[in-house]
Amino acid sequence: MTEIARLDYAVNALGYSAALGRLVGLTSKGHAWWKNPSHVVLIDQKGVVSDLGPVDAQWFRTDDVTAGAVVGTTFYVRDNASLRAIDIDPASPTYLKIVRSVVLDWPALALDDFTAGAAGKLTGVSAAGWGPGEVVSFDPVSGRVLGRKEIKDLPGRSTYGAVVIDSAGTIFATNNGYRGRSRVYRITDVAVELSAGPEMGMIDGAGCLPNPMPPRVEPPAPRPEVPAPPPAPKPPAPPAPAPVPVVPPPPAPVVTTAPPTVAPQPIPARAARQKPEPRRDLSLKVESTPLTKSRKWVMVTIILVMLGAGAAAARARG
């Protein structure tokens, strides 16, 4: 345990506000609680306290307040058997007013601390009765208990004044005093004691504060304005280049395409006769037609002429 700061007044019902990045609590801060209402304060990671002002309800006091938690911009505190909802949104018209009060079911009304769990419900550890301690969850809007479960090895008949829960749903609870020691337990389905220390009469817990914010960097002081130098004269534009004659491209060569060579077609072979025919002899029969007689006279005449021509040629040679 590390001491961050020492205050000269008590702060109770601590809760953590992710929206404000601070712990939220109630204190009388030196004011007599029977004369003045409770003040809402913020505490940063260095222990610096900011007083937001009194709760806007003259009848509200801190003498019976024992537990607190923040859901969104609503600060829930247990006031005896009632749950008070205080608006801590600075932009809200009901800022620092009690916007709702409900009566808690048993055993939520016996919780000395609770923390914001999943789905906006509040969760604490009850040690009322003779059995082991139990985890109790309830609805902060209606005050109804949503679930309760006895935990093995979690001591009963003692109060748990500090309860927090991590992102995995594991609960860490500190017993105010069991067998003369204040003990820290990790609670899942069973309870495991993590450490023990001197017995404390008053204890409270809240969610973990974020890492310290980086220091604010002031912007550099503005430099005096220096008149800008006059613009340099523009150089004269270069002369336009002489036009380049356009030479027409040479005509495209004419490509003569030779006609395609036609392969000679084969001459089909003459089909052979399937069966040789027998030779036909001329008929020896003498024709007796009139045409046959005329042919004979023509042959005789041709022979005579040839004989005459041969005789004449012999005489000429003699």
Results as ranks from 00 to 15, higher is better:
P198Q: 06
M202K: 15
I203D: 06
G205N: 03
C208N: 12
P212V: 09
M213Y: 07
M213G: 10
M213V: 15
R216S: 08
E218R: 09
P220F: 07
P220Q: 06
P220K: 10
P220W: 10
R223C: 02
E225R: 08
A228F: 09
A228R: 12
P230I: 01
P230N: 02
P230K: 06
P230W: 00
K234V: 12
P236H: 04
A240R: 13
P241Q: 10
A242I: 10
A242S: 12
V247A: 10
P248H: 07
P248R: 02
P248D: 02
P249N: 01
P250E: 01
V254L: 07
V255W: 04
V255T: 04
T256P: 12
T256H: 11
T256M: 13
T257G: 00
A258F: 05
P260K: 04
P264M: 03
P266G: 02
R270N: 00
A271D: 03
P276Q: 04
P276A: 13
P278M: 03
R279Y: 07
D281S: 05
L284M: 12
K285H: 04
K285M: 07
E287Y: 05
K293G: 12
K296A: 06
M299L: 14
M299T: 14
M299R: 14
I302Q: 05
L304S: 08
V305H: 01
V305L: 14
M306D: 05
G308L: 15
A309D: 11
A314Q: 10
